[in-house]
Design a protein around this nucleic acid. Structure first.
Length: 342
DNA sequence: AACTCGTGGTG
DNA sequence: TCACCAAGAGT
């Protein structure tokens, strides 16, 4: 086994690490576990530069865990809208209520308790307890995976359980028993600022001399990429029912599926007959006002062609939402459509 | 084990 | 224009 990296990484971190992120307490003060927890959830599959604004805004609206628990799910999703992976927000809100009822509002300090919270897995639980309370835990996020797969030339991609097991083993091997909180932040900073996906800055890396990928100049071969698959393209029509006062009809989407818990337009197959029938079903005297331009919205695993259709609806039916005070969450493309309406 | 779940940046 | 992918978890 190669030499443990923690000592070199910790030394590098003191000088070159990121010490002023919004969820990091000012020096010598303890971190706020609510802030750390929120940041870790937001940072799942999401880059720091994207999260910073959302984090600051979220804390403005929900300054304490108590205020988050007391808020409605729609109010929480409204502040999460645009960040993606909305199950994170629903689980966050659910977990806040669990912490209020089961732990009297005090963030739990036992690993078992934390990992049992919805939306918190092994790595996130370790990160929260390490950074918040300096407990000894190992994390394995995308940064650590990238650093270690290069350092040890780990074969296979992350989707394979065998590869993940090996990486967890290596991650635990390198985790120090002292200065664990600093190490957790340090190894992520190293991955995020030096050992990047493209063009890693090996010259500045504190562990370059023992890195197998650096020694063999194979940094771009690690981590091994996932085998690619063709993304299917789906298409839908979004029916924008609008009344004379320019109120727009939105409906809450089920938790299961894309954009779960957000509010969106009525959807149907993008077919003239189906569209006509859907309009009649919604309101017998609703009429198409204007067919808008179809555009493409891409997800990680498929493309979606969206055909928005503006429809005049004589009177209010069901739940209309006023656009001026949008206290609900809407998907990004829906937000863009609404902004383009006059 | 493999798939689902968002959006923005990057080359 | 387009594919890839980033502080993962749930099913």
């Amino acid at each position: 086994m190669a030499h443990p990296i923690s000592k070199s990484v910790l030394k590098w971190f003191d000088q070159f690490g990121r010490h002023h992120l919004p969820w990091q307490a000012i020096q010598s003060k303890p971190n706020n576990p609510y802030h750390v927890w929120l940041s870790e959830i937001m940072l799942q599959q999401t880059q720091v530069t994207t999260v910073i604004d959302y984090f600051n805004n979220f804390i403005q609206h929900f300054p304490t865990l108590d205020s988050l628990a007391s808020a409605s799910e729609d109010a929480v999703l409204a502040q999460w809208a645009g960040l993606g992976y909305y199950a994170r927000a629903r689980n966050l809100h659910l977990a806040a209520n669990i912490i209020m009822s089961q732990y009297q509002g005090n963030f739990p300090t036992e690993f078992k308790q934390v990992i049992d919270l919805p939306g918190v897995g092994e790595s996130t639980a370790g990160a929260i307890l390490s950074i918040s309370f300096d407990q000894n835990h190992t994390i394995l996020d995308g940064n650590v995976k990238r650093v270690l797969s290069r350092y040890h030339q780990v074969k296979g991609h992350y989707g394979q359980s065998k590869t993940l097991k090996e990486l967890w083993c290596l991650a635990r091997y390198h985790t120090p028993n002292e200065h664990n909180a600093d190490y957790t932040q340090a190894i992520m900073d190293l991955g995020a600022t030096l050992c990047t996906q493209r063009k890693p800055d090996c010259e500045q890396c504190p562990i370059q001399s023992d890195c197998l990928a650096q020694q063999t100049n194979t940094q771009d071969k690690y981590p091994n990429p996932k085998p690619r698959k063709n993304k299917p393209t789906r298409s839908i029509a979004m029916l924008i029912f609008r009344d004379g006062k320019h109120n727009i009809y939105l409906q809450k989407r089920p938790n299961k599926g894309i954009w779960g818990g957000l509010w969106s337009f009525v959807e149907c197959v993008d077919n003239d007959k189906v569209i006509q029938q859907s309009i009649i079903d919604f309101h017998p005297s609703a009429l198409i006002e204007k067919s808008l331009t179809t555009f493409k919205h891409s997800f990680t695993h498929y493309h979606l062609l969206i055909h928005p259709i503006l429809i005049h609806c004589p009177d209010v039916k069901g739940e209309f939402k006023f656009l001026s005070r949008l206290n609900i969450g809407v998907p990004k493309p829906v937000h863009n459509i609404i902004c383009q309406l006059d």
